[in-house]
């Protein structure tokens, strides 16, 4: 992947897309091969180290913190950027308070960027689904990743929310300069915003190209709709 690109990874059920995500972010080890990010191998790193190396992600089934407020969810994303020590927190040194204020301000900016400022005090568990998705994206952005990996961000969203999401993904690239890798079933999203689409089936890459090229590729159509030959 190149800097500043939006790439989509698509494929039918069980094609191995989420597995690929989980291997990149250190949840499972690969059985062979290497993963290089910005020239450095990230194979074998624990998930929190993968994050520290500049890869942020969201999850297919949402892994926000349901019992934290929206603001706190985002603040947890700033963990790596926090320069206050535990000791200074225990006795509330002025330096820790200043650092806390700085984080609160940055979190506030991020909440506004994602349109979450009005609901920042609610517990994440009570939010509508689309809002929960955005909380997860905001939390991942808070860790200042160079690359964002979004696992089915449009799942369960209504068409209006999907449009907002498309706009948001573009802004993340255009305004924040993030590189974006996307796994998505929602073809409207994929075809709309991707610079490049990679199609997987049964664990292998079967096609790659612009959305238009991929859409016409007979191998892709066969993978998705099944073939006459198999019947």
């Amino acid at each position: 992947m190149h800097e500043g690109e939006i790439v989509s990874l698509i494929g039918p059920n069980g094609a191995g897309k989420t597995t690929a995500f989980n291997v990149i972010t250190g949840i499972y080890p690969p059985s062979a091969g290497d993963i290089r990010f910005a020239g450095r191998s990230v194979v074998g790193l624990a998930p929190h180290r993968v994050c520290a190396s500049g890869i942020g992600r969201t999850f297919q089934n949402l892994r926000i913190f349901p019992n934290l407020s929206v603001r706190d969810n985002v603040l947890v994303g700033f963990t790596l950027g926090n320069r206050a020590s535990l000791l200074s927190a225990l006795v509330r040194l002025p330096s820790q308070r200043r650092e806390e204020q700085r984080l609160q301000a940055e979190a506030g900016a991020l909440l506004r960027l994602l349109g979450l400022a009005e609901i920042e005090d609610q517990l994440a568990r009570y939010l509508a689904y689309g809002d929960q998705r955005r909380v997860e994206i905001a939390r991942a952005l808070a860790a200042q990743p160079r690359m964002m990996m979004l696992d089915e961000p449009a799942a369960g969203m209504n068409p209006a929310e999907v449009d907002d999401l498309n706009a948001l993904i573009r802004r993340m690239r255009d305004e924040l300069g993030k590189t974006i890798l996307l796994v998505e079933h929602h073809m409207n999203v994929v075809m709309d915003i991707s610079d490049r689409v990679i199609v997987m089936d049964q664990g292998r890459k079967i096609a790659e190209g612009t959305p238009q090229e991929v859409k016409r590729d007979p191998r892709v159509i066969q993978a998705y709709l099944g073939s006459e030959a198999a019947a």
């Binding site: 039918p12 998705y224 709709l225 099944g226 073939s227 006459e228 198999a230 019947a231």
Partner: peptide, 8 residues
């Protein structure tokens, strides 16, 4: 998911 097959 395999639509052609199912419809046949």
């Amino acid at each position: 998911q395999n639509a052609f097959l199912a419809l046949r």
